[in-house]
Design a protein around this nucleic acid. Structure first.
Lengths: 149, 149
DNA sequence: AATGCAATTGCAAATCGTTTGCAATTAGAG
DNA sequence: CTCTAATTGCAAACGATTTGCAATTGCATT
């Protein structure tokens, strides 16, 4: 068995805390998010949800994602091109490397880069509110030396 | 007055080079881009264009931006929230700090960050094809040390 | 367990930024 | 100046997301 995330988020608790109803559609969506190891978009979440309860609508998925984002339970990422993709907010801060061939997302973190960002902003007279660092790349061809091909 | 860009791009030449027609609408749009010191979006370019030639359509602006992007004459940036914004491709590579209050864009560059990005990607087994580093912040309240000017 | 009502839903229509099909116009080679 | 393919404006189509609305439902209350 593989743990999708180090910190399994208890979304229902988070929702209750904000005085929001735990409805059937929300339960389904929340369960999907809980064990999503990837970074699905709204449509993908919708598809997974329909398999569990065919009555769920795409609007509800969008509404739920917005709700979860507002209470800070998930993060929304608008990677180049595609629709927004989501991930639980539990983990600690990280940036993303997107495989431009597969769409796979790899998380990474660099304290040094963060420091440099702060430094740059400071020098420009700004306070960073949030930032976005995305690397778009492709898997390096293993084996022979660096060659085009 | 003020030089919008260190390197004033000769868009018409670039277009001619790719065997594309220099039409009236294109001339207008190109002239706007040439002395745009900011990072306007398509609608903004359209508005400026209409002041010069009221016959220009928004579709043509979009088509021209796409064309210029394809030949590598401009860069498109999809900053959080808003529509794509454009800038001449002439300058050397840089990233962006976006003032979340005004929408102003400040350009910066950090060789060190670039290096670190490469290093990270390499360690993850990837080659970076492109990347995106955006800082979203607000002007620091002029406390004591730094003074805005 | 039944009640009541605001929160939530599904649906369809609306929205926003952008692209596209098409018939009319036009740049620019000959 | 002629010719034709490239380009245009327009409106309609687009994909992702949001919204109005009437019907439904969670859940605090009896």
């Amino acid at each position: 068995m593989n743990e999708p995330h180090p910190t399994r988020p208890d979304y229902e608790a988070e929702l209750r805390k904000t005085g929001v109803r735990i409805t059937r559609p929300r339960k389904v969506i929340l369960s999907i998010l809980s064990d999503a190891g990837d970074h699905p978009d709204a449509l993908e979440i919708f598809k997974r949800a329909v398999e569990i309860d065919s009555g769920i609508s795409l609007s509800t998925v969008y509404r739920t994602m917005k709700l979860l984002e507002e209470i800070g339970a998930i993060h929304r990422h608008a990677f180049e091109g595609g629709p927004s993709r989501f991930e639980p907010a539990g983990e600690e801060h990280h940036d993303h490397l997107i495989d431009i061939e597969t769409g796979d997302v790899i998380e990474f973190h660099s304290a040094r880069i963060e420091e440099l960002q702060e430094e740059i902003a400071r020098e420009l007279g700004y306070d960073i509110v949030r930032h976005r660092l995305e690397l778009y790349g492709r898997k390096r061809r293993a084996g022979r030396s660096a060659r085009g091909g």
